[in-house]
Design a protein around this nucleic acid. Structure first.
Lengths: 347, 347
DNA sequence: ACACAGTGTGGGAGCGCTCCCACAGTAGTC
DNA sequence: GACTACTGTGGGAGCGCTCCCACACTGTGT
């Protein structure tokens, strides 16, 4: 009646200690794989742990040790739709894989509306996670700054500019785009147009640079009439394609900076009676579901998204571990992973 | 030097109490919106809270109150690919929306490999979450049972059978399929074939039943040669379509139980020189990206996935709240949401 | 013989809350 | 005017850990 009916409940550290005939401190040391414990005691403790089916209480541990054993993955909701559809799941998969070996929770946070973003800021101020993974941050986003102030380790995906200061993981957009264009050149295409994303998005900018560099490297002049800026949407891609066709009726290849825009372009090409790939070769970017199911299947640049997620998580964990030692967000190196061209029938 | 440098740290309940000139208990009551506190004191406490920027320490709260303020969303990884691509994100979005108003964390757990599943079981045994959301559980999955034993409230998506015992949220697969078939009948199609998913998957079974019932309701006999069983993959859809064409060269419509299978079917139809929709009308299920980007765009049955996620989360929260009162998983009602046919050019 | 640095180990203190008992104050009742 | 019945409120105890100081013990060097 005095609330001491604990014998039925989940075992505590103390109970393990009693069972193993040692002190609490020793059990704690064994559990945390820490220093100096004799083999013998260690074995005894481990036996007691398995016999009792002991699982440490996360809350107690967090409270005592002042950490959370949790990191947050922040998804900027509105963007999520833009991105090649599997993007989101692949990132999660990568992050999950990196976390699988650890005892760290993945807390998912959506930050779509302004209201949600405010809630998120408030949430983060509560220091409820040890670190934060930010997916596709905008140039003007105040979140990174807030996190820096709070001293919460952060890793972002995708550089916001060439001079990214935050630790981040990106794919080599420039090289990927260049490879796509080189591929078109290799196929004998002579007049290669490109449909870009909004140029204030750094990644889109890089892809355009890749296009330019590949042409330049092949000794081809870059004709600005072959460049159309769109907005990563299908309709935008379609409009851009229409423009390009008007300006350059003789074009025989198009590199679109996203599969979705490529899908729009494809529609316009069809409407204009151009065959793919016979009349016009088409290459996209993202290697999304759209690419695989397009007719004809779309050649596309594949980003190692899962690996990016894994790398981000690993970088973050390192930072979290080293947190106490030094500055949390000291300019970590940007890791840039390679893209790969997946060739299909559209080119 | 004695570690008492707390003045700079984050404020605690106690500090708020001092500031407001009240006791700890009172602050706790205000924070938790609980009973009997005079308006006056309440206001004083709230003022102190905002002045200090107080945010409750989640770990301390969890430890003291023996709860977690967190629920887990378990994603069976391998499946995730099967499902219409946006499925995953939409569920998350719905769950996130339902949780936005609360102070409850969403913990994401991937359970792909057997190893991961074991880890998950271990994780759950640790009672680290107050409730669990299970997405697309298999008939033989031991997880629901484990959770029941542990007394952890659970809600699943998609019934495992007609006699589902767990609280769950599902969409009306039968009605959705029936609507699709009725639509084809309305369009004047006479010979309507169907490509089904594996029939031991309850949802696939229901869709086939819907097909049958719609035909029966229209007074049409159901010809079993018009039914081909596939496996929810594109290649499977293609093979099934080939079979169907061989057996019924005169068919003029196909209802596929998933968009991906429809994509396969479309390819086979093209190869066979059938035009869509002139010669053969095609309808899919899921209304995924694939459907929107198909050529021609695919008519498809749309499941209210986001709403399903929202509903699941709400059901779970109710159960978590009522946990102490009674049995956690007492046969909750299955909520079945309506599907909607999205008509596009393929039919 | 002594001091001295190591190793392992036990256990007190305390993390920031919630729970709940005790108690002051106010009001209603015989 | 003493009794009971609230309504608010304060604060002790304790949730299950980690941290760290203290205390054996072992050796080694003088």
């Amino acid at each position: 009646m005095n609330g001491n009916g604990r014998s039925g409940g989940r075992p505590t550290l103390e109970e393990v200690a009693v069972r193993a005939g040692v002190g609490r401190g020793t059990v704690s040391r064994v559990i945390n794989g820490s220093s100096k414990v004799s083999e013998q005691t260690k074995a005894a403790v481990e036996a007691a742990v398995t016999e009792l089916g002991y699982v440490p209480n996360r809350a107690a541990r967090a409270l005592a040790a002042n950490r959370n054993d949790a990191i947050a993955l922040v998804i900027p909701e509105p963007e999520a739709r833009f991105f090649a559809e599997p993007y989101f799941s692949e990132v999660v998969r990568g992050v999950g894989a990196a976390l699988a070996e650890t005892d760290i929770q993945l807390v998912l946070t959506l930050a779509g509306s302004d209201r949600e973003r405010r809630r998120l800021a408030q949430y983060l101020s509560g220091h409820r996670v040890d670190g934060v993974l930010l997916v596709s941050v905008h140039a003007g986003d105040p979140l990174p700054e807030l996190l820096a102030e709070l001293g919460i380790p952060t890793v972002i995906s995708g550089r916001r500019s060439a001079a990214e200061t935050l630790p981040c993981v990106d794919s080599d957009n420039l090289a990927g785009a260049a490879e796509a264009v080189r591929h078109l050149l290799d196929r004998g295409r002579r007049t290669i147009a490109t449909i870009t994303g909004p140029l204030d998005v750094y990644g889109a900018h890089c892809r355009l640079d890749g296009y330019r560099q590949a042409l330049a490297a092949a000794g081809r002049p870059v004709d600005e009439r072959l460049v159309a800026v769109a907005d990563f949407t299908e309709e935008g891609g379609r409009r851009a394609m229409r423009e390009l066709l008007e300006r350059n009726p003789a074009l025989d290849a198009v590199f679109a900076s996203s599969d979705v825009m490529a899908a729009g372009a494809r529609r316009e090409l069809r409407a204009a009676g151009r065959r793919i790939p016979q009349d016009v070769a088409l290459v996209g970017f993202d290697d999304s579901v759209v690419a695989r199911h397009m007719d004809p299947p779309l050649t596309s640049v594949r980003q190692p998204i899962e690996e990016m997620g894994r790398t981000m998580a690993r970088m973050l964990l390192e930072r979290v571990a080293g947190r106490r030692g030094s500055a949390a967000n000291a300019g970590g190196p940007a890791v840039v992973l390679q893209n790969r061209l997946v060739v299909r029938e559209s080119s």
